[in-house]
């Protein structure tokens, strides 16, 4: 059954929100939805770019009080 997971990448300069997402995606099931929290605005560009390149589904990005919420779905 698909799950929704939150990855709190706030304050993570190294390995950073995208690397955290890559690590968690590897151990997730197809259909799982992952929401990355990041206070680095670069994540709002980098994460969708990688997700499209690797072939997962980019769902949405929202920003609230300086925190970007980027949601993706594992498709393969």
């Amino acid at each position: 059954m698909a799950e929704k997971k939150i990855i709190d990448g706030r304050g993570s300069f190294c390995p950073g929100p995208l690397m955290e997402l890559i690590g968690v995606l590897k151990m997730s099931q197809i259909g799982d939805e992952l929401e990355v929290l990041s206070n680095d605005k670069g994540s709002a560009k980098d994460i969708p770019e990688w997700v499209r390149k690797v072939g997962h589904e980019y769902v949405s990005t929202t920003e609230e009080d300086g925190v970007w919420h980027i949601t993706v779905r594992k498709t393969k």
């Binding site: 300069f13 190294c14 390995p15 950073g16 995208l18 690397m19 890559i22 670069g42 980098d46 770019e49 990688w50």
Partner: peptide, 10 residues
């Protein structure tokens, strides 16, 4: 490298 630059720290 896994992300779009050669190290995670910008």
């Amino acid at each position: 490298y896994p992300i779009n630059r050669v190290h995670s720290l910008e």
